[in-house]
Structures are given as C-alpha cells and as structure tokens.
Computed example of a mutant assay.
Amino acid sequence: MIKNFLSNKAIWLMIAIIIGLGGCSQKDEIAESNDQLQVVSTSTIIANLTEEIAGENINHVSILPAGNDPHIYEPVPQDSIELEKADLILYNGYNLEPNIIKLINSSGIKAEKLAVGEQVKPLDFDYEGQKRPDPHVWGDAKNGIIMVESIRDKLIELDPENEAIFQENSAQLITELKELDLWIKNQISTIPVEQRKLITSHDAFQYYSQAYGLEIPGTLIGISTEEQPSAQTVKNLVEIIKNTGVKAIFAETTINPTLINTVAEEAGVTLAEGKLYSDSIGVKGSEADSYIKMLTVNTNTIVSALTQE
C-alpha cells in the first residue's frame, strides 16, 4: 500500500513538473512578445502604413476602427490603456483627431510621439479669419511617401535590431507609391478638362486635387466633419454646381450621405455611385482596405463619374 502511494506520488510529482515547465514556456513566450516595440497608431491610414513597414516585428494597435471618422472620434477607456502601454504613438496631427490628441498629451502618457502628418508641409485653409493647416495630407501619394519615411525612421530609432526589415519593407512600399502617383496622374488626365472639378461632402481632397489637376469649386462642409451646414450653405453649393456644369458630385464613406444627396437632387446632377474614402481606409476585406487601395478606388470612382456621357 505504501509502495503504491509512493508510486502515485511520484507520478503526480512528474505531472506537476511538466505543467510547471509548460507554464514557464508560456511565460517565456509572453515575455518575448512583450520585448517587441509597443506601437499605437491613431488613424487607419497611419496604422496600415505602419503594418506594411513593420509586419509582425512590433506589437501594434490601431485605435480607430476602419471606417471611423477621426474628426469626431470619442476615445474609450481601452484607448487610454493602450496609449499608456505604448513605447511609440503615431498620430496624424494638424488636429485631425482632436479628442485623441488631447488624450495623447495628457500627463499619464510617457511614450515617444510622432505626428506623422505634420512631417508634410501643409496646405492652409481659412478658419474664422485665421490660417489653419489642412490635415488631409495623404491625398497626395508623394506625401504618403513622406509619411512612410518618417514612420520607418522612427521605428529604426527605437528598434535598430529590425532596421533591415523596416528598410526593405518601406523601400517596396515607396516603389508602389511612386507607381501609384504616376498612375493617378494618367487616370485623371482622361477626364475632359472642363469636367475636372471635384465637389464632395467635406473639404478633404485639397492635396489630392492639387497633386493631380482637379479644381474644388465648393464642398458641403469644411475641413472638419464636426461642422453642420446651414440651409444657406446648401443653397450656395447648389448654385455653384449649376454654374460650373459638373456632371457628378461625391458622397464619402465616413459621412451620412443624406445632405449631399439632397444637394445633388436640387442641383440636378448625379450623385456618384461609389463613395470616396476620405478619412479612413475601408474595413478589412473591402475594396479599399489599404492606403494604396484607397487612393486607387477613389481615383477610379472620380474618373468613372466625371467621364460619363
């Protein structure tokens, strides 16, 4: 009986050792994972570029879900937790994501911070008599290259062991963006000159239009989607559309299309079948679930609508 007890005891001791070793292995894996750079991105565009550059060599969290509007996003408690854990926070800046920027600048956030969009020299807009920088810098693929380079350099600074990977991935991405830039120019050139006019829900396409040869006669609302257009604003935009003779105007994926649809009806023009991606890439698996796809889809939508007979 004693012999059986000792035998059982030995068996249980062996099981305990195996479990303990397994636990140690799991802890080691967690520790190894936690050794990776902890990076938090705000906008979905910056998040996509960061993932393209770094792959699985960082622990990366994107605060804004795809399809969300950064202008009006309200942070949730989990966002504070992620920001507090971060080694590096990548945000657009130029007040694109005002509520998140306030949170980033709070005293509890100790991470390195990079305003990726602010690496681009901005176009200005007038707001109540003052010049403000336009935050929608990614509309120009050449600015996308600047954003890639700034993210790459910051990742290398904080994680030099992975420099070769960051350099290789960013070089490939930059090549693709240069090709995209030329492709967009060629596509826009197929639109009749008199129809190269872009009217959208909000003023998010100045960089795109300046880079690729479009004019923006007017928009329903200004730079930020926080604005609420008045009846007079709607009326004025209808008159602009009638006077310019454009064939189509455009809704956006992050903005309720009701008002821009009303404008189209009153102006007697087509509301383009496809919506433009302005402040966010599309959800995973959609036609515009990356920065490059977003600019590609937008260009195809614009060309198709403005070249219609």
Score class of each variant (00 low, 15 high):
residue 2 I to H: 11
residue 3 K to M: 11
residue 8 N to D: 13
residue 10 A to M: 13
residue 10 A to W: 06
residue 13 L to W: 02
residue 18 I to Q: 08
residue 19 I to A: 15
residue 19 I to Y: 13
residue 20 G to A: 11
residue 21 L to T: 13
residue 22 G to H: 06
residue 23 G to D: 10
residue 23 G to W: 07
residue 25 S to Q: 09
residue 26 Q to R: 13
residue 27 K to E: 12
residue 35 D to Q: 15
residue 37 L to I: 00
residue 41 S to I: 01
residue 54 A to L: 03
residue 55 G to V: 12
residue 55 G to H: 11
residue 56 E to Q: 14
residue 61 V to H: 13
residue 62 S to D: 10
residue 66 A to I: 08
residue 66 A to L: 10
residue 66 A to T: 14
residue 68 N to D: 14
residue 72 I to P: 00
residue 76 V to C: 07
residue 79 D to R: 02
residue 84 E to I: 13
residue 84 E to M: 13
residue 84 E to T: 15
residue 88 L to M: 15
residue 92 N to D: 13
residue 94 Y to A: 05
residue 96 L to N: 01
residue 97 E to R: 05
residue 98 P to F: 00
residue 99 N to D: 09
residue 108 G to S: 15
residue 111 A to N: 14
residue 111 A to V: 13
residue 117 G to A: 07
residue 121 K to L: 10
residue 124 D to H: 09
residue 128 E to A: 12
residue 129 G to P: 11
residue 130 Q to H: 08
residue 136 H to A: 11
residue 138 W to D: 03
residue 142 K to M: 09
residue 150 S to R: 07
residue 151 I to M: 01
residue 153 D to G: 10
residue 159 D to P: 05
residue 159 D to N: 14
residue 161 E to L: 09
residue 161 E to M: 05
residue 163 E to C: 08
residue 164 A to C: 01
residue 170 S to H: 01
residue 174 I to T: 14
residue 176 E to T: 12
residue 180 L to Q: 12
residue 182 L to H: 12
residue 184 I to L: 05
residue 188 I to L: 13
residue 189 S to A: 09
residue 193 V to F: 09
residue 203 D to E: 08
residue 204 A to Y: 02
residue 207 Y to A: 08
residue 220 L to K: 03
residue 230 S to K: 06
residue 230 S to E: 05
residue 230 S to W: 00
residue 233 T to A: 13
residue 240 I to D: 12
residue 244 T to K: 06
residue 246 V to W: 00
residue 248 A to G: 05
residue 253 T to H: 05
residue 257 P to H: 06
residue 258 T to A: 14
residue 259 L to S: 03
residue 259 L to D: 06
residue 263 V to M: 03
residue 263 V to P: 03
residue 265 E to F: 00
residue 269 V to A: 03
residue 272 A to T: 01
residue 273 E to S: 10
residue 278 S to F: 00
residue 281 I to W: 01
residue 282 G to C: 12
residue 282 G to N: 10
residue 284 K to F: 00
residue 285 G to H: 13
residue 288 A to C: 07
residue 289 D to K: 04
residue 292 I to P: 07
residue 297 V to D: 02
residue 301 T to W: 01
residue 302 I to D: 04
residue 303 V to K: 08
residue 304 S to H: 11
residue 304 S to N: 14
